[in-house]
Design a protein around this nucleic acid. Structure first.
Length: 561
RNA sequence: GGCCCUAUCGUCUAACGGUUAGGACGGAGCCUUCUCAAGGCUUAAAUCAGGGUUCGAUUCCCUGUAGGGUCACCA
C-alpha cells in the first residue's frame, strides 16, 4: 500500500509537515535541570481544587529551577465546553498567586489553546498516515458497540486492537469505496505493541513502574477532524518544550498510548510525574473529589467561606509535602509575624509517595487558616474581611464602614500579644466573632434570655442590672488602662452590688451573695454583648466604651418586667 | 472482569531489617482563667490477613483481601 497516496487522499489540504512547526516553535534551549511545566485544564466548569493543587506544584517546580510554567487550555472536546470556564480558570490562578509565565497571548508558543491548533495536529496526523503509522477507520458507533458486546460475551478485553482492528489492513480500494459512498471516518494510530509485554518506566513521583506496551489502535483524529487528547498532548508538549509533565494519576493508564506516540514521532520523552487525586470520604467509600457532587471541589467555595488564599495554598502545600507541618510549626516560623506559606521550602522529594491520595480535611484547613489570620495585623484583617463582605455580606460592609476605626479597635483585641487570638478561622465565621460589637448585631432579647436562665429569677436579675447600670455610670473602673488594676476595681464593684469575689466565702455561705464572681462577670458579658463567649472583658468594655455599655444594659433592662 | 497503582492511629504521615512504632490535625482530660480563643501538660488511638526469607520484618518475597485508577470519536 502506498501510504503517501492514502495521506493525500484523506488530507489533501494539509500542506505542512511537523518540521515546519518545529521551525516556527524552536526549542527553548534551556540548560539541563531547568524545568518547563504546564497546567492543562479543560474548560468544563469551575476551577477545581485539584487543578489548583497541580498548578501550585507545577509553578513551584518551574520557579525553583528558573524555568517556565505555562497554561494550556485543552478544549478539544467542544461538546463538553462550558462558556466562561476559561476565564474562571485564569482568574482563579491569578487570585491564588499562581499566574502562569506563559499562556493566553503571552509567550512564544502561542496559541496556548488547543482549539486554535488544529492545523498543527493535522500535519502530525498526516505525517503518521504517510508513514503507515495511522489509518482511517470507518466503523460506526453502532458497529463499535456491537463489537464491544461481542467482546464482553466472549470475555475478552474490550477495545480496538489486534484482530478487532477491522480497518487496520484495509486496501486503498476499500477506503476509496467508502469515501465515495460519503462515509465518515476517524483516524487511528497503528499500534505495534504487545499488551502482555511490560516496559519499565520511571515516574518522577511514583518511582519505577511496569507498564504494558500499547496494542490499541486508539483514535488520534475524530470524525470531523477534531483531535483527541493523546495526540494533542504529545504534539503540544513537544512543540512547547515541556520538560516535566505533571498530571493526575488517572492518566497513568493511558501512558502506554503516549509513549507509543513519542516513539512514533521519534521525539524526546519528557519527565512524567503522576499525582494522586484529592479524595473525599463519601459514606463508607472514598472517591475522587467530584466536580458535580462536591462543593469542596470548587475553588470558589473557599473564597465564599472566606478562607484567605494563603490558607488554601498552605493546605495544598501540606498535601504535596507532608513535612509542611514540621516547618510551619517550628519555633522560628511560629515566632515570625511576616512569614508566608509561600516561603515553604517545597521539595519534589516530598511528592515521592505512593498511597491512595489524601482525603480533604477541613479541620486541618481551619487550623492552618487560623494560624495565618492570627499572624495578620488588625488593619489587614479589617481589609480582608471587608473585601470578603463586599461580595458576600453587603450589610456587614455598610455597618463596618460606618465606623472603620472602631472595627479596627475591635480586631486589635488580644491581637498584638505574643499569643494572639486564634478565633477567626475564615471571614464568614470570623464575622460572628466580632459583629456583636456593632449595635446592629447586638440583640438585647437574646441577652435577656441567657441571663434569666442564669439568674433563675427575673426580678433579682432586674435588680442586678439596675445596680450595674448605676455603679458603672458613677464609676469608671472599666476604663482603666491596666488589666491588673481593672481586675481589682471590678472586684470592688462586684462586692458593692452584692457578689462574692472570693470562692471560699461564696462556698461557705452562698445565700449571702447574689452570686459568685463568675456569674457577675457573665452578667456583664452577656448584658453588653449578647454572647457568653467573648475575649477578655477588660478589652471588650474598653473598646465598647462607657456610653455603649450603659446603653446596652439599659436596653436589656427594658426587656425585663 | 482485564490491566495498573496502593495498604501504619479517625485523618495527613515518620520510622538504614533492630524504636517503647514518632509527629501533626481532630478527640478526651487537666492546668491557667471573668467566659471563649490561644498556650502548657497528660491521654486514648495504627503496622489489612496468612504464609515465607531472617537471630530479628512496619520494612524484603509470595498469596489472599480491601481501596483507588482505568478500560470512550472525555479530558
Amino acid at each position: 500500500m502506498d501510504y503517501s497516496k492514502l495521506a493525500e487522499l484523506l488530507l489533501p489540504d494539509v500542506k505542512t509537515v511537523p518540521q515546519d512547526w518545529r521551525k516556527k516553535y524552536p526549542s527553548r534551549n534551556l540548560p539541563k535541570g531547568v524545568e518547563v511545566t504546564r497546567l492543562c485544564p479543560s474548560p468544563t466548569g469551575f476551577l477545581h481544587v485539584g487543578a489548583l493543587y497541580m498548578g501550585l506544584i507545577c509553578k513551584r517546580i518551574a520557579a525553583d529551577s528558573n524555568g517556565v510554567f505555562y497554561l494550556r487550555i485543552e478544549d478539544t472536546d467542544e461538546a463538553r465546553e462550558v462558556v466562561g470556564a476559561k476565564e474562571l480558570i485564569v482568574k482563579g490562578l491569578d487570585q491564588y498567586g499562581l499566574t502562569p509565565d506563559e499562556g493566553g497571548s503571552i509567550g512564544n508558543y502561542a496559541p496556548y489553546i488547543q482549539s486554535a491548533r488544529k492545523d498543527i495536529y493535522a500535519s502530525y496526523v498526516k505525517d503518521l498516515i504517510k508513514r503507515g503509522l495511522a489509518y482511517p477507520c470507518f466503523m460506526t458507533p453502532d458497529e463499535l458497540s456491537a463489537m464491544r458486546k461481542e467482546q464482553e460475551t466472549a470475555k475478552v478485553r474490550p477495545g480496538y486492537y489486534g484482530k478487532y482492528a477491522k480497518w487496520k489492513d484495509a486496501s486503498i480500494e476499500q477506503i476509496k469505496e467508502r469515501l465515495a459512498e460519503g462515509a465518515t471516518y476517524c483516524v487511528r494510530f497503528r499500534a505495534n505493541g504487545d499488551q502482555n509485554k511490560k516496559q519499565p518506566f520511571k515516574d518522577e513521583f511514583l518511582g519505577d513502574l511496569q507498564i504494558p506496551e500499547n496494542d490499541e489502535d486508539f483514535i488520534i483524529m475524530k470524525t470531523g477532524g477534531g483531535t483527541t487528547y493523546h495526540l494533542a498532548h504529545v504534539v503540544d508538549d513537544s512543540l512547547m518544550g515541556t520538560t516535566f509533565v505533571i498530571r493526575g494519576e488517572e492518566w497513568l493508564s493511558s501512558l502506554p498510548k503516549h509513549l507509543a506516540l513519542w516513539k512514533a514521532f521519534d521525539l524526546e520523552i519528557p519527565l512524567y510525574g503522576h499525582i494522586m487525586p484529592i479524595n473525599k470520604q463519601d459514606g463508607g467509600s472514598v472517591r475522587k473529589l467530584s466536580k458535580r457532587k462536591d462543593p469542596e471541589a470548587n475553588v470558589e467555595m473557599y473564597s465564599k467561606a472566606g478562607y484567605p488564599e494563603d490558607a488554601i495554598i498552605g493546605y495544598l502545600y501540606r498535601l504535596a509535602n507532608p513535612s509542611f507541618d514540621e516547618w510551619w510549626q517550628s519555633p522560628e516560623i511560629v515566632a515570625k509575624k511576616d512569614v508566608s506559606v509561600r516561603d515553604f521550602p517545597f521539595s519534589i522529594e516530598g511528592l515521592k509517595r505512593g498511597g491512595r491520595g489524601p482525603l480533604v480535611d477541613m479541620k486541618k484547613l481551619d487550623d492552618i487558616s487560623g494560624d495565618i489570620i492570627a499572624k495578620m495585623s488588625a488593619d489587614m484583617v479589617a481589609e480582608k474581611m471587608i473585601a470578603w463582605a463586599e461580595i458576600n455580606d453587603i450589610e456587614f460592609t455598610k455597618v463596618v464602614n460606618n465606623n472603620l476605626d472602631y472595627f479596627k479597635q475591635v480586631l486589635s483585641i488580644e491581637r498584638d500579644a505574643s499569643n494572639p487570638r486564634k478565633d477567626i478561622l475564615n471571614w464568614s465565621q470570623g464575622k460572628s466573632t466580632v459583629d456583636y460589637f456593632f449595635d446592629e448585631y447586638f440583640d438585647a432579647k437574646v441577652a435577656k434570655e441567657i441571663l434569666v436562665a442564669d439568674h433563675l429569677d427575673e426580678n433579682r436579675l432586674n435588680t442586678v442590672i439596675k445596680d450595674l447600670i448605676q455603679t458603672l455610670s458613677e464609676n469608671s473602673y472599666y476604663t482603666e488602662n491596666s488589666l491588673e488594676i481593672w481586675v481589682e476595681n471590678i472586684k470592688k464593684l462586684a462586692t458593692m452590688i452584692g457578689f462574692a469575689t472570693d470562692r471560699k466565702a461564696y462556698k461557705e455561705a452562698p445565700d449571702k451573695f447574689k452570686g459568685d464572681f463568675a456569674l457577675f462577670m457573665k452578667t456583664i458579658r452577656v448584658g453588653v454583648t449578647g454572647r457568653d463567649r467573648t475575649p477578655n472583658l477588660f478589652y471588650v468594655l474598653k473598646v465598647l466604651g462607657k456610653e455603649r455599655v450603659l446603653a446596652r444594659l439599659e436596653h436589656v433592662a427594658s426587656q425585663l418586667t
